[in-house]
Design a protein around this nucleic acid. Structure first.
Lengths: 344, 344
DNA sequence: TTGTACGCGTTATCAC
DNA sequence: GTGATAACGCGTACAA
């Protein structure tokens, strides 16, 4: 059925422009894709037809034909967290450079949600996948990798997955934080950990214990508070710590939201930071931390850079089919001293 | 070419599972889509084949066939802004409910970028598009609408576009903020506006002027500072205001980033909030504002709710083909008084 | 209940 | 330089 006039709500196809321009289908395809082997005259006719029809190439058909989706998908823990947003931002920047689409999902730390999203990404034939994982979908991730989908894990390291990883040097960040406190004379350090139900929560928990041992810091189980990555939990943990018969003289928070909760708890109590207790945070140093009071000493992370780096790796793998060895990129943390930590 | 064994890196198609299961292509398709008219025996065989092959339906092909993409696309101004991310979060929540994908792009207030993204969305055959626009791509947006793509504009109102809109009652928010200050005795109110190069920046600027007139507040052009939506600009504007021979006694910031810049400028100067000047912010009241000091009085916005609502509208339009009238959903702002405003 | 065949909108390989 | 034509992977009438 030839149609030179489009019906209501009909969307033009390549056939329509071919018909209108009076050329063949292949010719239209060529001018769309900038193939030089089309005479100027015909090329012009095609362009006019495209314009008058308001034709827009159907990526879906293109993708089916060319067997790629021109989209890279990213699975975050929680879009709403500034750290995670920065990750997404970095990824988006380079995706755009390559004229790629960006698909975003978030897990909210739920394994089923993560599985669903990963399966969605697979069905969509995402050209690349960037994952900030709960750490409990190893099988699924490995199966994606086996299908030759470039996967880059970010922020949270999960062992046993054969793929690229980009993140902060978190062990080093912990060390810097603890050393800073130790140098100020603090020995009794409370830790506001993350969620032990996530792999990386447990992993970082172990990391802290290790570093504390290494630095010769005394160990007291009660000084380690764990729980979900929520504002409320941050407050609860802080209150519990300060309610101890012998409270810590310093506290380390491993995450922005937890730390915010702790600060709020302090502000709403008699506890003064840093008068009664010092506080250190490991997180991205974005401008919001300039205006919280007291100014929080932090060991900085680099989510924006991580995002960019991860995306770049995806595109490298997409370009060069040659199997390069899996990379492990770690960005070095920096200590930013503000008012929340002081000498004991 | 029949192949019952997949080559390295090959990905199974519906044909492969049909071959392995010894059934026809159509049968496989049916079990995938949950069609009941398949005998249990064959259905089982197919499922086994799917499992052993690790088959995953190709959404691209499905989408081509069914003429929908199962993705809704969202165009934000800046992924990094918490307000905007809350929008995305709300949208994502309902997209997930419907088993839809979410594609995200950001303009960074650049018109060309917005056009590119919108064209990408069109080529992708996005089932629905949610836009927080610079306001300068009206033609493009209208052309999308003419092609029967459900479009919802969020946050920033742009007149003359026949589509649904969801946002805050910003005029009312301005009024609440100004009335609050006026009630405290403030007449000389400085305004830190947004970017006059964006449509909504100019729009809101006009809105403020109108409300000030309505409330009988004196008009002084020098009290209105405009510029890009950046932290630096917020600081600059604040400093300029406070450097006036007769500085304002109160300041209204129309955006979180600008406000943060202003607070930082104050903290780094002799100017005390609220001692020397009161400060009000119009924005989402997320937890970070609990811990900035001084506590900032704000008129709240509801980006999360806006996002959810916008997405729901998209799906309504997707379901019911019947042309319902375009909706205009406004969420009412609330005044949250903190320490940054005080009686003159 | 099951299988066949066609078409979705493209790209790519051919002959011409 | 140009135009048929066969795929790409799938859904779905239709026939069997």
């Amino acid at each position: 059925m030839k149609r030179f006039i489009l019906g209501e709500g009909m969307v033009a196809t390549i056939k329509d422009v071919a018909g209108l321009a009076g050329v063949s289908l292949g010719t239209v395809s060529k001018v769309i894709n900038g193939d030089q082997s089309v005479s100027d005259k015909r090329s012009e006719r095609v362009k006019v037809a495209i314009a008058t029809l308001g034709y827009s190439p159907n990526s879906i058909a293109q993708n089916l034909r060319t067997a790629n989706s021109k989209t890279i998908s990213v699975l975050l823990a929680n879009i709403t967290n500034p750290f995670q947003m920065a990750l997404a931002k970095g990824i988006e920047e380079v995706a755009v450079e390559h004229n790629y689409n960006l698909a975003v999902s978030s897990t909210n730390e739920r394994v089923e949600k993560e599985l669903d999203s990963l399966e969605m990404f697979e069905r969509n034939r995402s050209d690349g996948i960037i994952i900030c994982s709960t750490g409990k979908t190893k099988e699924k991730i490995c199966s994606l990798i086996e299908k030759n989908i470039p996967v880059v894990m970010v922020d949270r390291f999960v062992p046993g997955i054969p793929c690229d990883y980009v993140g902060d040097n978190f062990p080093r960040a912990i060390e810097i934080a603890l050393q800073h406190l130790q140098a100020l004379g603090h020995n009794r350090i409370g830790i506001i950990h993350g969620d032990m139900n996530t792999y990386h929560g447990a992993y970082r928990h172990g990391l802290v214990l290790k570093k504390m041992r290494k630095l010769g810091l005394p160990h007291d189980t009660n000084l380690h508070k764990t729980g979900p990555y929520t504002y409320e939990q941050g407050g609860n943990a802080f209150r519990e710590l300060m309610a101890m018969s012998v409270p810590p003289t310093a506290v380390l928070a491993v995450n922005n939201v937890l730390c915010a909760g702790a600060i709020n708890a302090a502000n709403n109590s008699e506890v003064n930071i840093p008068g009664d207790v010092s506080l250190v945070l490991i997180n991205e140093n974005n401008f919001m931390w300039d205006i919280v009071s007291p100014g929080i000493t932090m060991v900085t992370q680099s989510p924006l850079t991580i995002g960019r780096s991860a995306a770049n790796i995806i595109f490298e793998r997409l370009r060069g089919k040659e199997k390069m060895a899996f990379t492990n990129t770690l960005f070095e943390p920096t200590l930013v001293v503000r008012e929340s930590t002081r000498i004991l």
